[in-house]
Design a protein around this nucleic acid. Sequence first.
DNA 1: TCCAGTATGTCAGAATATTGACATGAATCA
DNA 2: TGATTCATGTCAATATTCTGACATACTGGA
Lengths: 147, 147
Amino acid sequence: MNQGASGIELGTSLGYLMKEVASALRAAMEAVLRPLGMSVTHYSCLELLAQRPGLSNSELARGTFVTRQAMNVLLQALEADGLVTRSAQPASGRALPTQLTAAGRAQLATASAAVKGVEDRMKSHLSPKDQDALRAMLSTCAASLRA
Amino acid sequence: MNQGASGIELGTSLGYLMKEVASALRAAMEAVLRPLGMSVTHYSCLELLAQRPGLSNSELARGTFVTRQAMNVLLQALEADGLVTRSAQPASGRALPTQLTAAGRAQLATASAAVKGVEDRMKSHLSPKDQDALRAMLSTCAASLRA
DNA sequence: TCCAGTATGTCAGAATATTGACATGAATCA
DNA sequence: TGATTCATGTCAATATTCTGACATACTGGA
């Protein structure tokens, strides 16, 4: 009697569960990254850049799920700290390719190991088959939401 | 060769996928709630309050995954708009029970239907059995992260 | 009883992200 | 060619959330 016929049952809502896991994951990541002096977005940017060197500001923003304005502020800080470098001249259009420096790679190495520990803990009670199934369903959900 | 042995493979990382779905879900919710003049947290608070009347500020904060300070700011706005009422006297301790007003319930009804549409779209390509499996695995992940 | 530990509400300041806006460069098309 | 549309980088203002801090209220044990 607590919710109407068209309401959402929080206890069984996939959306609520998704938010719960995402929130717990973010909190766990913050807990291990804070001692390293990094935020989640900070780490995400470096990780993305390590796997896809040369990404532009806008591409990094999309890959880390923030606006390009927010990523721009972050990139300026990362560049000032000597963790990344941005080309002075655009290779094409206005996009400025970004690369990790040696210092950036070094900082990332520590953070990446810590974050991997968190992710391992998250899936510690899932069998490899379960993990594959979860991956597939999450991809399906993401695709459905984009449509 | 893009990442070290202990690195995270973004393309297959459950954590990254989770963030992707949560981000897409939040964006979709914002898209339908904005025309109604509500934010996601605003909606979440009303929904939680409808299903569990009398929750305190701190309990609402935990249920919507924000700090109690942020929820406090939101509750003051909701109260000023006549959507909720807070007891003047704590029933026990310092916790002040909160209730939805008729106006709050009315606003929630519209929003809840819109959000249900988003959630339905998200799971539109999952069978009922898949949905149960996804729920179970997400619960497992949340429990593992809390531990 | 007293005290340490925990939970809550709330204020203030700082950090972070978002929306809005504008100029620039490329691509598409009539 | 010229015009339109789209993507990008960036600045400014706003909004939202968080961290830090403090007082208050309950709880459990010495």
